[in-house]
């Protein structure tokens, strides 16, 4: 059977600051290497509702403030409702840093100005002021075991064959707080995570993931990429088994960071 996936990339020329297009490349190639037809749909300023609706996987990267203002302006009430529907319906999505914050209730800037978010995810972000250091550095998180991407049939081991540990780089001034901490995507092993305080990192809601992990996240966490692909295929075609790919190089790149941070994966 021929499978086809459409990956919707929200605002590629605005929300693309930290090499986040690497995530798109990884999704694209890991589909192609398995003979899954894949189309990357750029959802630029002024995109149509129908274009968003046709997507099987959604991705949105981080941005600088001015760029994010342009996106805010473009994201009409209609588009917000539609995106919310897609998230609720379980469309797999990956929302990094600025996009993660944007999907929350609001972002409070250092000077106290509150910028409303899309209120799709129940979280808020506050900038603690410019005399507080940004949260910057390599980060390792352990994905919370309730999420379906953690294979519960396998015991979590230190082997890279399980998805439990994710490696990335974070760089954010805002601190994010979840209304319900049990929805956090993972627990911080090394680094700061959502706010540097409560050890939570990111959020997972249905099949949408919000996270601060750049790096970009997918190249060094190929199992997460495969999870998004698998979910999208299952939603569209029913249960599909993904062909295994060789991730030796990925695992080597992961272990360099783990070793540096003095932890096992």
């Amino acid at each position: 059977m021929n499978y086809t996936l459409k990956i919707g990339w929200l605002y590629p020329d605005l929300m693309n600051t930290y090499g986040d297009r690497g995530n798109i490349l990884v999704l694209q190639k890991r589909c192609q290497w398995r003979n899954i037809d894949v189309e990357i749909k750029h959802l630029d300023v002024g995109f149509l509702d129908t274009e968003l609706k046709a997507c099987d996987i959604l991705f949105m990267g981080g941005a600088q403030d001015t760029q994010q203002m342009i996106v805010s302006h473009d994201f009409s009430a209609n588009k917000t409702t539609l995106l919310k529907e897609l998230v609720e319906a379980g469309t797999p999505g990956l929302f990094i840093c600025g996009a993660y914050q944007f999907l929350g209730q609001y972002y409070k800037e250092a000077d106290g100005t509150k910028i409303p978010g899309l209120s799709i995810l129940d979280l808020y972000t506050e900038h603690p002021g410019n005399n507080r250091k940004r949260l910057i550095g390599n980060i390792i998180i352990k994905v919370n075991s309730q999420w379906s991407l953690v294979d519960r049939n396998k015991p979590i081991t230190n082997k890279p064959s399980t998805i439990s540990y994710l490696v990335g780089f974070e760089n954010h001034g805002g601190m994010t707080y979840l209304a319900d901490k049990s929805l956090s995507f993972g627990k911080v092993i090394k680094g700061f995570g959502n706010n540097g305080r409560d050890e939570t990192e990111g959020i997972m809601y249905k099949n949408s993931i919000g996270t601060y992990l750049h790096g970009p996240i997918l190249p060094k966490n190929p199992k997460l990429a495969d999870f998004l692909i698998q979910k999208a295929l299952t939603k569209k075609y029913g249960k599909v088994k993904l062909e295994k790919l060789d991730d030796t190089l990925e695992n080597k790149a992961r272990s360099v960071i783990a070793k540096r941070l003095g932890t096992a994966l």
């Binding site: 930290y18 090499g19 297009r21 690497g22 490349l25 790096g215 970009p216």
Partner: peptide, 9 residues
């Protein structure tokens, strides 16, 4: 730079 994300650009 400690962050190597840029190589993806």
């Amino acid at each position: 730079g400690r962050d190597v994300s840029w190589i993806w650009d």
